[in-house]
Amino acid sequence: MDLRKLKTLIDLVSESNVSELEITEADGKVRIVKSAPVTTVMAMAPAAVAPAVQPAASPVAAAAPAPAPAAAPTGHVVTSPMVGTFYRASSPGAKPLADVGQQVKEGQSVCIIEAMKIMNEIEADLAGTIGKVLVENGQAVEYGQPLFIIE
C-alpha cells in the first residue's frame, strides 16, 4: 500500500468518530485502531515524568508546585462539549467572541470549535464576566476540557 494513502487513512481515522478501520487490497491488509486511553496516557506521560525527576533533585522543589493547583481561579468553568480545534473569533483577524473582562450573557457565543470541518459555536451557559481564557487560539481541545472561567 502506498505510504501517502496509509497516512491519509490514519488522518481520517484520527479526525473522525471511527475507532477502527480495516482495509484489504491485493497487495496487503491494513488495520488502524484508535484508542482514546492511549492518547490520554501519552498526553499525561511528560507531566508525570517531570515531577518524578524533580523530587530526586530537591525535596523542597516538590513542595513548591503543590500550591499552584490549590490557587486555581474560582468561578464557573465553560468546558468543551467536543473534540476539535478552538478558535476565539469567527474568522482570522476578527475580534474575539469573548475576551477577559467582557460581560457575557447566558446563550451568547464565546468561541468556535471546529470538528470534522464543521464550525460549532460554543455558548456561555451562565451570565457573568470572562475571568480567564484557558486555551490558545488554534489549539486542539478534548471533550470536557476547560475553555473559559466566568466569574
Rank of each mutant, 00 (worst) to 15 (best):
T40E: 11
L97E: 06
I112W: 04
V77E: 08
L97Q: 06
A140W: 07
T39E: 09
S91Y: 14
V41L: 13
Q103H: 11
G101C: 09
P146A: 10
A68M: 13
S58N: 14
T39G: 11
L147A: 00
E123G: 01
P96F: 03
P51E: 14
G101R: 10
A63W: 12
S35L: 12
S14C: 07
A63F: 12
N120I: 04
A26P: 05
P55L: 14
A66I: 14
T40P: 00
K95S: 05
G28L: 08
V77K: 06
V78C: 01
L3K: 09
P81Q: 06
I112C: 10
T24K: 15
K105C: 02
L9I: 12
V78F: 01
V49A: 15
M44E: 08
A71K: 13
I23S: 02
K132G: 00
P51H: 05
Y143D: 12
I113K: 06
P46Q: 09
A89N: 10
E121K: 04
A63R: 15
V104D: 07
P65F: 11
H76L: 00
K105D: 13
E136V: 04
P67M: 07
G101H: 09
A36N: 10
R4C: 00
K117Y: 01
V13M: 09
A72N: 05
I113F: 05
L147S: 01
K117T: 11
V100Y: 08
P67I: 10
E142C: 02
F148D: 03
A94E: 13
S80Q: 03
R31G: 00
D27I: 04
T85M: 08
S80K: 02
G93I: 09
I122H: 01
I149Q: 05
D11H: 08
D11Y: 00
A61I: 06
M1N: 03
A45R: 08
E121Q: 09
I150W: 04
P96L: 06
L9H: 04
K105N: 13
K5Q: 15
T85E: 09
P146F: 01
I150T: 07
K95I: 07
I23P: 01
N120P: 03
A45V: 08
A66M: 12
D27V: 04
L12R: 10
D2C: 00
G107D: 10
P37C: 05
K105A: 14
I113L: 10
S91P: 05
E136Q: 11
M1Y: 14
P55E: 11
Q54G: 05
T79K: 08
H76W: 03
S19N: 15
K34V: 06
V135P: 00
V100E: 15
S91W: 13
A52I: 15
N17P: 03
P81V: 04
S80P: 06
Y143T: 11
V60W: 02
M82S: 03
S19A: 13
A72S: 13
A71R: 13
M82Q: 02
T39D: 09
E123S: 06
L6M: 15
V141G: 05
M42E: 14
L21I: 12
V49F: 01
L134H: 01
S90M: 11
E106T: 11
V18Y: 13
Y143V: 11
A50I: 15
K29I: 00
K7S: 14
T74L: 12
V104E: 07
K29D: 00
L147K: 08
V78D: 03
A68S: 08
V13E: 05
S35F: 09
T85G: 04
P37Y: 10
